[in-house]
Amino acid sequence: MTEPQAAIVHLLDIMAKLRDPDGGCPWDQVQDFASIAPYTIEEAYEVEDAIARGEPATLLDELGDLLFQVVYHARMAEERGWFAFADVAKAISDKMIRRHPHVFGDAAARTAESQTSAWEVQKAAERAGRAEHGTLAGIPLGLPALTRAAKLTRRAGRVGFDWPDAGAVLDKLEEEAEELRVELKNEQQSSDNTALKDEVGDLLFVLANLARKLDLDPEDCLRGANRKFERRFGFIEQTLKSEGKLPGDSTLDTMEALWQEAKRRERMAI
């Protein structure tokens, strides 16, 4: 047995022991797919965070946590007689071979265009095999909303339902912003914010697609904006702290001036 094989077997044995009704972990014994799913999503985000931070040791640790989630779900499925970890590994191996004929068989398909075409053909066949019909079938509901918005319209774009360019999306963004302004005035006369929620959703949807048309990941764009906000607000707090103050003790004008100073320093550092 190779070292990687031994490591996987050891991990599977640990998972089996944790779930063992006789002597296992009381917490692990009572978990199910629904209760574990949020942890699986969280671990995937922690992997992304480790990558963004450029921390190899943290990435190693987080990848282990994510692998453990796969093992956890596979173990629960095995207990129900559905499938086991080996079936999961075999299924993804078979899928990758099917989707890469240019690597595992067809030498004539060794171009980027042929690869993309083969990939999409295989995915369409797999969706059909799962009785998922329609252009938008198979896009997971559990995806982050911005990511799902981009995927929905990317899929629709393949059959010609798309904005011609980013400029057209900007025009649509301005249209949606104006509709939101109108609704803001109406909302002042109504206690029902359903229409307001709808307009904000439309605006976010168009923004997600603006990112897509620019070949950007909307989630990555927003994560970057979040980090920038944290960094600049942290500068505000640290500056005020050095003066014996707190943000709550300061005026908006004072904090805005410090925000602009943080922006100036960032530009100078580039």
Rank of each mutant, 00 (worst) to 15 (best):
P4V: 01
P4M: 06
P4E: 02
I8Q: 08
V9D: 15
H10L: 15
L12R: 15
I14G: 09
I14S: 12
K17G: 05
P21N: 06
G24D: 08
G24P: 06
Q29S: 12
F33R: 13
F33K: 09
I36C: 13
T40L: 13
I41W: 09
A44M: 00
I51T: 01
G54C: 04
P56E: 09
P56A: 08
D61K: 07
E62V: 01
E62L: 07
L63A: 04
D65Y: 01
L67S: 07
L67Y: 07
V70A: 11
V70C: 11
V70W: 05
V71A: 10
A74G: 00
M76E: 02
R80W: 06
G81L: 05
W82D: 09
I97E: 06
R98Y: 04
R98L: 08
R99K: 00
R99L: 00
H100K: 07
P101G: 02
H102K: 06
V103Y: 02
F104V: 04
F104K: 00
A107L: 04
A108K: 04
A108Q: 03
A109E: 00
A109F: 06
R110Y: 07
R110H: 10
S114Q: 13
S114H: 12
Q115P: 07
S117I: 08
W119A: 01
Q122E: 04
A124E: 00
A124W: 03
A124Y: 02
A125D: 03
E126P: 05
A128T: 09
G129F: 05
R130H: 05
G134F: 04
T135P: 03
L136A: 06
L136S: 03
A137K: 01
I139M: 06
L141I: 10
P144H: 01
A145H: 11
A145E: 14
L146P: 04
A149D: 12
R154H: 14
R155C: 06
G157H: 07
F161W: 11
D162Q: 10
D162M: 10
W163A: 13
V169P: 08
V169G: 07
D171E: 13
K172R: 13
L173T: 09
E174W: 15
E174C: 14
E176V: 08
E176P: 05
A177C: 12
A177E: 13
R181W: 11
R181C: 14
V182K: 15
K185D: 15
N186I: 12
Q189P: 08
S191C: 11
K197C: 11
V200M: 14
L203R: 13
A208Q: 10
R212K: 10
L216K: 08
D217E: 01
D217F: 04
P218I: 05
E219C: 04
D220E: 12
L222P: 07
R223D: 06
G224H: 03
A225D: 12
N226H: 14
R227S: 09
K228C: 09
K228P: 00
E230D: 14
R231M: 07
F235M: 08
I236C: 10
E237D: 07
E237P: 02
T239G: 05
T239M: 01
T239S: 12
L240R: 05
K241T: 10
K241G: 02
L246I: 15
G248H: 00
S250G: 08
T254I: 10
T254L: 13
T254S: 12
T254E: 15
M255A: 05
L258Q: 08
W259T: 05
A269S: 13
I270H: 14
